[in-house]
Design a binder for these strands. Structure first.
Lengths: 106, 106
DNA sequence: TTGACATTTCGATGATTCGCGATACGATGA
DNA sequence: TCATCGTATCGCGAATCATCGAAATGTCAA
């Protein structure tokens, strides 16, 4: 992962921070769909889809699509497309790498 | 330290990231004054003064003063005033705290 | 091929940030 | 007290970001 100003920019918005938080425990935090559905998406599709995250955030779907794309571009999220849907989940490896970078290189 | 969007905003600018880097090894990185002077400032004054960092950055004094204030306000730098001068150094404790926050809470 | 649907991209507008020069503040020394 | 010097703050125009709705793209199913 490339740790740079752009990455920190992605983290400098409360909604994008919220998204990262929600995806830590989506079954609990994504309340716009049932936890069964959330569990299914996470296990079978590898993440939560854009519309559900947008619903949770209360912002326009196009805004959230952009945010998710930003978080994906800087390596903080992994995206997986299944048919019409794009599912996003955390990139735990890169988050740990970021932590180590800050401890040693920042 | 309070880890929030404002903190990441402070890190989302290349010059501010550079400043943090320079203050890791100022004797080597602050080239606008002699290394003797840098050593003296670090040891006796507890940091590097605004003008020298501005010189190093090649940006206006007012710009760098603001950047240093931002980095100080979010806990990444410590400032110490001696007479007319304000000296800034890294807040290593908070930087490690930030690293741990990212590893566990982000 | 067409229709429907999820997502992405585009264009617009208001808000925020960047970086500057000018100015105000605070400390020193004559 | 006053002049000077380092720093902090203010106000500005330019650039970037936030957010929306509309339009374009991609995918499935009929």
């Amino acid at each position: 992962m490339n740790v740079n100003a752009k990455l920190f920019m992605a983290l400098s918005n409360q909604t994008r921070l919220n998204i990262l938080q929600w995806l830590k425990d989506p079954e609990k935090e994504i309340t716009s769909v049932s936890s069964e559905e959330v569990r299914y998406m996470m296990k079978e599709k590898g993440g939560i889809c854009v519309a559900d995250i947008a619903e949770n955030a209360g912002l326009a779907q196009s805004t959230i699509s952009k945010y998710l794309s930003d978080l994906h571009n800087c390596g903080l999220l992994i995206s997986e497309r299944h048919g019409k849907w794009t599912y996003y989940r955390r990139n735990e490896e890169n988050i740990q790498e970021l932590s180590k970078y800050i401890a040693k290189e920042l």
